[in-house]
Amino acid sequence: MAFYETRGFILSLRVVQGLLTLLVLGLSAYVANWWGGYWNAGAPSSVAFMVFVAVITLITLAYLILVPMRYGESKLNHAGVIAGIEGLTMIFWFASFVALAVFVGNRVCFGHVCSAAKAAAAFGAFEWLAFSATFALSILYVWRNRGVGGSVAADPKMNMSEA
């Protein structure tokens, strides 16, 4: 087993994902709040989508950390389900940071709100990279264990469950 498949490495990636999610949530919520208060309208869809993705990611991270720890080798901890959740979250982060970057790039932008929006897009890109890494590890695990039986439970060491 390589170092990148150890429980500690995966948990550290999850912690990084959680911290980046909280950072992006705070920045994008600030931008959404300012935009709604300044223009007396709702937040732009790209900013609202970034907030949505950050909130969904917190729920996803709770699942990806707690379910493997609690349920070990059950149907809830299926490697394909984990890979699917990782892939969907990765796609959401890619779409949200690109949409926000395009939104900020197409307008005259200055001040603290503009800086916060640009920072949210940049940290969203780093979050996408973090989820790309864990998605690649989960796909690698599924690929290595294909054809092993009807149900491929996720490796307990990959998912921080008790060994």
Rank of each mutant, 00 (worst) to 15 (best):
A101H: 05
W143P: 01
V142S: 00
G147E: 11
A153T: 13
L11P: 03
M158F: 15
Y30E: 03
G80F: 04
L64S: 10
A101M: 11
Y63N: 12
C114M: 04
T60W: 03
R7E: 11
V102D: 10
V102A: 02
P68T: 09
N106V: 05
A101R: 12
M158V: 07
V142W: 02
S115W: 11
I85H: 02
R107N: 15
V104E: 14
T89G: 09
V55C: 09
G150E: 14
Y71S: 10
G18T: 07
E162P: 01
E86A: 08
L137R: 14
D155V: 03
E73F: 06
R70D: 10
Y63W: 08
M50D: 08
E162H: 04
L61M: 07
I85V: 15
L23Q: 03
L66T: 12
L19P: 00
I59F: 10
L76S: 11
V47Y: 03
A136P: 11
V51G: 01
A83P: 01
L20M: 12
L88E: 06
E5G: 04
N40L: 00
A130T: 14
I56S: 13
S46R: 02
M158N: 09
V98E: 08
M69E: 13
F3L: 11
A41M: 10
L11I: 06
V24K: 01
V15I: 14
N106G: 15
C114S: 15
G80Y: 04
A116D: 13
Y30C: 02
V31A: 08
A133Y: 05
A29K: 06
L129I: 10
T57V: 01
A95T: 14
A163R: 05
D155L: 03
N145F: 00
R144H: 04
V51P: 07
I82P: 02
